[in-house]
Amino acid sequence: MTMTILGAGFSGKAIGALASERFPVYGTTRSGAKFAALERAGIRPLQFDGETISDELAAALSETTALVQSISPDAQGDGFLRLIPSLETAMPRLEWVGYLSTIGVYGDHKGAWVDETAEPTPLSNRSHERVLAENQWLEAGAAAGVPVALLRLSGIYGPGRNPFVNLDNGTARRLVKKDQVFNRIRVEDIARATLFLMDHREGGAFNVTDHMPSPSQDVVAYAAELMGVPTPPDIAFETAELSPMQRSFYGENKRVGNARIRELGFEFLYPDYLVSMQQLWKDGGWRG
């Protein structure tokens, strides 16, 4: 078994670190400055600018049995697929693909529950691009006879990227919008879910998210309580200074279920933010 991760960033690096305990893992990055961090995670780094497949990357792809795509798409869909003639030509040993997508593909459901049976109804341009890329990967996998798992991720956090860090550096805010909730997911559970789906050679869509969609201000307040620091004041969403992207996240309100992957036997280590935040604070791992 050999894995290649296209885009070994926050999630990709966590996947690679876990997978490297079992078999060789290659991971791409745009910058050679990030090679050392990938090597410390047990990942063999390769440079990939998203436009040209080097001889080194081509050689790694020829060995690859499991591929994880974590690079964001563009208006034409998946950039990597445009660079190869076909999956079977570029990766003759390929047995499974994991595509890291987002629950943003579901759009807005006004706080109602959704699962993988819901038709994607994306609102933002970036979510439209995700749906396009998802379909391209499913089509490519079907043509090659390789299962493609779409991991639809919620708000990602973990060591080094969490409300404790924001409270510590003074950037934490409690934005309040009536009845707004978000799902979230620990990066370690993304890694575990990826390997679980790979081991079972599962294809199709899977929501990789926690069990407890909650208002974001509640999570910040809980982190402040654990840290023993003052809770930041409420800021009304309507008057908050936000970038267009930040504001767009609040235009989608839904509760996303994760029953499908759990029915296969997967168990989340961090099923809700209460358990997760307690662990991050108690172990001191929140700093990263």
Rank of each mutant, 00 (worst) to 15 (best):
G203A: 07
P233T: 13
R192L: 04
R22T: 15
D168G: 10
T102F: 00
N258R: 04
W137M: 00
P232V: 10
S11P: 07
R126Y: 09
S276I: 06
F266Y: 10
T4F: 03
V219A: 04
V229K: 11
N125W: 11
H109N: 10
Y270K: 03
L6K: 05
R40E: 15
L274T: 15
T102A: 04
H211T: 11
Q246R: 13
V181S: 08
N258M: 04
V148D: 01
F35H: 12
R130S: 02
V146S: 01
S11D: 08
P233G: 15
F10S: 07
A143Y: 11
L151K: 00
P244I: 12
G160D: 08
L264A: 12
Y106F: 13
P92A: 09
R262H: 11
Q76K: 15
G155D: 04
E225H: 14
N169K: 14
N253R: 06
M3Q: 11
A8P: 06
R82H: 14
G27K: 01
M91S: 08
P120V: 06
F266R: 02
D189K: 00
A142C: 09
A60L: 06
V68P: 00
F196N: 03
A75M: 10
G251F: 08
R186N: 14
L132H: 07
V114K: 02
A172D: 07
S276V: 05
V131S: 02
R192N: 04
A17Y: 09
F182R: 03
G7A: 09
G50I: 04
P159Q: 07
G12I: 07
R260I: 06
L57D: 02
Y222A: 05
A144T: 12
Q278S: 13
L197A: 01
G32W: 07
